[in-house]
Amino acid sequence: MADERDPELPGLLLRTERDLLIPLLRSAAASDFALRTACPGWTVRDVLAHCGSVLSRVVESRFGPDVFSPECNDRDIAERAGWTDAQVVDELEAGMTGAGAVIAAGPGVLDGVALGEWVHAGDVREAWGLEGAYRGPGLPLALRLLGPRARHQKMPLLVAELEDSEEELVIGREQEGRAPGRYRGDGATLIRLCAGRSLAGTRYELEGVTERELFLFG
């Protein structure tokens, strides 16, 4: 899989996930939003409030010195504490619709936002016990976004032999004197590795690189 930037890819991933996730959220019970997620301390509602606030910042170009920091994230969630669940979902839908064009017009530094939003959609599905939390139509798009994110985070070079793809995925940066690491497994498990999500029940092989070195959201 090519590692060159496609400026339209983040928006495509966001819109693809929007069309699947928003109807799911609209049909959920209020109690579903109170369930805990893989993100420490965050409920489903917190995750959705975070996602919507991030996309709103992107669309409105509202970036401060601590933007996307844990402190900023906590403030954004707290600001939405008085919103209804429907309002939280409304903001998320608007952001998933509008952020792609803004990201595409930029130099690529915000491409990882789309990947993070897609992972958080998986967090919601996992919290609700749904099958294929980090799979679905967006998975091939998310895997393509791993390349730029891995370069940005200076991840060691990794060659991924994906069971569910005919192509190898090469991500990360070559390091002098170090052979590329190798991953063998499915795409969804690679996403879990790179996002620091639970690996319970998965099966994969990893050589020449540690799990910690693959974590891209630190």
Rank of each mutant, 00 (worst) to 15 (best):
A38N: 06
T37Y: 00
Q153M: 10
A142Q: 03
R151Q: 13
D123H: 06
D3A: 15
R144W: 01
L141H: 10
R62D: 05
A200W: 08
A133S: 15
C194Q: 10
P107G: 02
R151K: 14
D85R: 06
D164E: 03
L190E: 04
S31C: 01
D6C: 04
T189F: 02
P137S: 09
P156E: 11
Y204T: 01
W128C: 05
R144T: 03
D3Q: 12
R184L: 09
R15P: 06
A127I: 06
T189E: 06
I103D: 02
E17N: 14
A28N: 07
T189N: 06
A38C: 13
L110G: 01
R45W: 06
Y134F: 14
S27Q: 15
E4R: 10
R149H: 04
L21E: 00
G201Y: 11
L193T: 03
F217M: 13
V109W: 13
R149W: 05
E167Q: 08
G11T: 05
L20G: 00
M155D: 02
E205T: 13
E93L: 03
L193M: 07
L162C: 12
R192T: 11
G181T: 08
S165Q: 10
R57C: 10
L55S: 05
F68H: 07
M96Y: 15
R62E: 11
P140A: 07
L92N: 13
E71N: 03
E4M: 04
